[in-house]
Amino acid sequence: MSALITHLKNKQLVWQASQQAQTAAAKIATGVAELDQALNGGFPKQGVVRINSVMGIGELKLCMPIIQQRQQDKRQLFVMAPPVQINAEMLIAHDIAIEQVFFVANDDKANQLWACEQCLKSGLCHTVLLWQSKLSLTQAKRLQVAAEQGDCLLLLFEYNSVAQPLPISLSMNLSREQDVLHINIAKQRGGWPVSDLTVKHTLNSIRQRYQTVAQPHTKNNIVALHAQR
C-alpha cells in the first residue's frame, strides 16, 4: 500500500493535509468569495488550471481578475490560438494592459502545445491561455512542469462533457443557468474536491465580450511560432 501511495504522490494525484498551509500563501483571489473559500484562497499563482465547460458561459470572464493580478510583475500574457477573436475592449475593461498581450496564431494542435510549453518555461510570461481538449497525462505533466519552471500560470480551457483526471494544480467543471454559475472543483492541489458550488456571475452579450470586428487602426500583437525539429 505504501508503494502505491508513493507512486500516486509522485504522479501528483494525491495531496497531504500538511501541504495546505504552504500552498494557501501561493494563491490569487478570484474576487468571488464563495469560490475563493472553496479554493483556500483562490487560483494558484503558477501551474496548470483546467476549466471544463460549454463555450461562452463566462469561463474567460471568470479568469479576468486573475490575469489582471498576474500582470503586475510586468511580464507578458500569451493567448494561444483562441477559438474566437477576443475583444480588446473587454481586456481593457478588466485593466489588462493590451501592449503586454500577444496572440500566437497556429491551427496545428501539436505546434500549439510546443509553443505553449516554450512560453511557460521561458520566464517571460505571467499567464498563458490555451484551448485544447483531451490532453494526455504526459502532455499535462510537461505543461505543469514548464509552468512551475517559468513561474507561470496556464489557464487551460476544455469543452468536453467528460474530463479525465490530470496531474495539474486545479481542475474545475463549469455549467450555467441564467445568471448562476455551477462550479465543481474536481481537483485542487492542497485542498479537497468541492461539488455543487453556485455563484452569481453576470454575463453580458457573449458576442460583445468575446468577438469583435477588426478595426483598421487596432494594434495586433501576433507571434508566429513554429516547432523546431
Score class of each variant (00 low, 15 high):
residue 52 N to M: 07
residue 52 N to G: 07
residue 53 S to E: 04
residue 53 S to G: 08
residue 53 S to D: 07
residue 53 S to W: 01
residue 54 V to N: 14
residue 54 V to S: 15
residue 54 V to T: 14
residue 54 V to E: 15
residue 54 V to M: 13
residue 56 G to I: 06
residue 57 I to Q: 00
residue 57 I to M: 05
residue 57 I to W: 06
residue 58 G to D: 06
residue 59 E to I: 03
residue 59 E to M: 03
residue 59 E to W: 02
residue 60 L to C: 08
residue 61 K to M: 13
residue 62 L to Y: 05
residue 63 C to R: 07
residue 63 C to A: 14
residue 63 C to Y: 01
residue 64 M to R: 11
residue 66 I to G: 01
residue 66 I to W: 01
residue 69 Q to E: 12
residue 70 R to Y: 00
residue 70 R to H: 11
residue 71 Q to M: 14
residue 71 Q to K: 05
residue 71 Q to L: 13
residue 72 Q to I: 04
residue 72 Q to E: 13
residue 73 D to K: 10
residue 74 K to P: 00
residue 75 R to Q: 13
residue 76 Q to L: 15
residue 76 Q to W: 12
residue 76 Q to P: 00
residue 78 F to R: 00
residue 78 F to S: 05
residue 79 V to C: 12
residue 81 A to N: 04
residue 81 A to F: 00
residue 81 A to M: 07
residue 82 P to L: 02
residue 82 P to V: 06
residue 83 P to S: 11
residue 84 V to F: 11
residue 85 Q to E: 14
residue 86 I to W: 13
residue 86 I to K: 00
residue 86 I to M: 14
residue 86 I to T: 08
residue 87 N to H: 10
residue 87 N to V: 03
residue 88 A to C: 10
residue 89 E to W: 03
residue 90 M to D: 10
residue 91 L to W: 11
residue 92 I to D: 10
residue 92 I to V: 15
residue 93 A to T: 05
residue 93 A to M: 07
residue 93 A to V: 01
residue 93 A to W: 05
residue 93 A to C: 03
residue 95 D to L: 12
residue 95 D to N: 15
residue 96 I to C: 06
residue 96 I to M: 05
residue 97 A to V: 12
residue 97 A to C: 12
residue 97 A to K: 09
residue 99 E to D: 15
residue 99 E to F: 03
residue 100 Q to C: 08
residue 100 Q to G: 07
residue 101 V to M: 05
residue 103 F to M: 09
residue 104 V to T: 11
residue 104 V to W: 02
residue 105 A to P: 06
residue 105 A to Q: 15
residue 108 D to N: 15
residue 109 K to R: 14
residue 110 A to N: 14
residue 110 A to Q: 15
residue 110 A to L: 13
residue 111 N to P: 00
residue 112 Q to N: 15
residue 112 Q to Y: 04
residue 112 Q to T: 07
residue 113 L to A: 04
residue 114 W to Q: 06
residue 114 W to C: 07
residue 115 A to N: 07
residue 115 A to I: 01
residue 115 A to W: 02
residue 116 C to S: 10
residue 116 C to G: 05
residue 118 Q to A: 09
residue 118 Q to P: 11
residue 118 Q to S: 09
residue 118 Q to H: 11
residue 118 Q to I: 02
residue 122 S to E: 09
residue 122 S to K: 02
residue 125 C to V: 15
residue 126 H to L: 00
residue 126 H to N: 13
residue 126 H to R: 04
residue 127 T to H: 04
residue 127 T to C: 06
residue 128 V to M: 03
residue 129 L to D: 04
residue 130 L to Y: 02
residue 130 L to M: 06
residue 131 W to L: 10
residue 131 W to R: 09
residue 133 S to C: 11
residue 134 K to Q: 08
residue 135 L to R: 04
residue 135 L to V: 01
residue 138 T to C: 03
residue 138 T to D: 11
residue 139 Q to I: 08
residue 141 K to I: 00
residue 141 K to R: 15
residue 141 K to T: 12
residue 142 R to T: 12
residue 142 R to I: 13
residue 142 R to L: 12
